[in-house]
Nucleic acid binder design. Structure first.
Lengths: 165, 165
DNA sequence: GGTTGACTTCAACATTACTTGAAGTTTTAG
DNA sequence: CTAAAACTTCAAGTAATGTTGAAGTCAACC
């Protein structure tokens, strides 16, 4: 018999839970939402191929940067159905995903910087502060705190024409 | 009469809603959760001082970077009660808040970079990839995708002793 | 002084992302 | 073979973050 003790091909739900740190109930929930898939044993128990670990890791990472499960499902839906994703499949997925991630991080940095200058400065004058009086400056741009959404904060703007400092 | 048309001192809930872009129902909800406060008119309608705009802007910004309302409430609770926060009060609050914000952004960048190298590279070999086989490397560090939480990814580690590259 | 719009409270509903529990089945260890 | 651990489904519960609707009150304008 040439089949010596090799790496196990499939995993039970408990094994996947232990290796990913995700509760079994959450794994069933993810399957319900079509984020992961499984086959069944003769006794109707879930049976996972090893690539599910990578899928779950991806799900956790995506959650951490603020994607909803539905969004993650859509991203993962691009992986080929019917076969284990290859290295190239994952690479393609990551390539499509990275710009979105970069953009989100840039938005966070923008928020931080705006807060640093608008709140952190203490504001030269409360009467002139756009954060304190949004209707004075940002209010004309529409609802919401626009200075936190890409526009510049009135009283700290040094390049009114939009050029870099 | 010396009282010419000056800046209004208080705002109705509708005015606050229009100026912040936050629904009136959400403003009442925030008040319920003690994130903002109001006084009442003789007719029992809510009356806001102008600093509520700044509070709401802060709430929106904090939400965008992932704080829960309860966390925001705790942060805002440091503002003085019983009087309108001054410039110095906001400055103090921002000073306490910024390190947390910096840390969170750093964490996001770490996630992005790990994804870039672990998923984005396609992995030199699926058999050696820590993301694909977490139990091989990260699995020993405990449950969860540890390489996304501050540890380094096995197959891309160039500084095993933890020194900077 | 009446109508209209803005406001009030309170309860119920919605969504996301799960967890818990009950009742039963399968697998594993001894 | 048996007992325990691990699994199954399905329904209900939880927490956060609000929205919606009903029933009534207040304020503003003509």
């Amino acid at each position: 018999m040439g089949a010596a003790r090799r790496q196990k091909v499939t995993l039970s739900i408990g094994e996947v839970a232990r290796r990913t740190g995700v509760n079994t109930s959450a794994l069933r929930f993810y399957e319900d939402k079509a984020l992961i898939g499984s086959i069944r044993t003769a006794g109707n128990q879930r049976c996972y191929t090893r690539d599910v670990i990578r899928r779950v890791s991806f799900i956790l990472a995506a959650k951490r940067v603020g994607l909803s499960l539905e969004e993650i499902r859509a991203v993962l839906a691009d992986l080929p159905a019917g076969r284990t994703p290859t290295r190239a499949d994952w690479h393609d997925l990551a390539t499509r995903w990275k710009p979105w991630l970069d953009e989100r991080i840039a938005a966070l940095e923008r928020i931080r910087d705006q807060l640093s200058s608008c709140i952190g400065c203490g504001c030269l004058s409360l009467d002139q502060c756009a954060l304190y009086n949004p209707d004075d400056v940002a209010g004309r741009l529409g609802a919401g705190p626009r200075y936190l959404m890409g526009d510049t904060c009135g009283h700290v703007t040094r390049t009114p024409t939009g050029e870099p400092p």
